[in-house]
Amino acid sequence: MKSNPLKILLTTDLLIAGAYGLILSIFPLFLMDTMAGATLFTVSLAQSLFLLSKINFHWIAANYIKHHHVLDRARGGLLTGAIIISLVPALYLTVSDMTLILLIQIFLGLGMGILQASWKILSHEDIKKTDWPTLQNNHRHTTIFVMAMTAALGGFTAYNYGYCALMYLMTGIGLLAVLLSAVLIMKSPAKS
């Protein structure tokens, strides 16, 4: 792992996984506790909409990025995705109705889809110069550990300081990812 862009990319991914992992395990409880009209079915619907939106926007973004000016578009996509994902916790705090949560889940899926598509293209560009399978394996293991830690940390934060503090923490970590994506764009020369 010699190149700086690669380190930035891997750190961005870990930060996003960490931010998302904070709420992943307790998201249904958050919805039931704070949203009007939350039932078992609507909570599942929220999760389902997120997955559908993520996979659809992933394909759309991947096709768009690969079409022309690949690296520029991928870097822009990384920043856009990180911004959208860091906005979502703030949006969770402002709404109190399940219908709006469903819309936010689609929005989150959009951000996640764009980010993942861009991340994959950028990392393939950089990682193919290095030992790809080893690096991919290490990154996958690290991500799992980060998500395990953040799942417990998310529960701890929400239990002791409330959902509000948890959302602020998520937004903070998301903004760090945005910052890193911006640094990546500034450091890398524009090329297609």
Binding site: L24, S25, I26, H141, A148, F156, A158, Y159
Partner: peptide, 22 residues
């Protein structure tokens, strides 16, 4: 059950995967 214990349950599952997978 509290928010903390739910988070811990998920964390334990992921930690098991992380440790044993290699």
């Amino acid at each position: 059950v509290t928010l903390l214990t739910v988070g811990l349950a998920e964390g334990i599952y992921l930690l098991t995967i992380g440790i044993l997978r290699p």
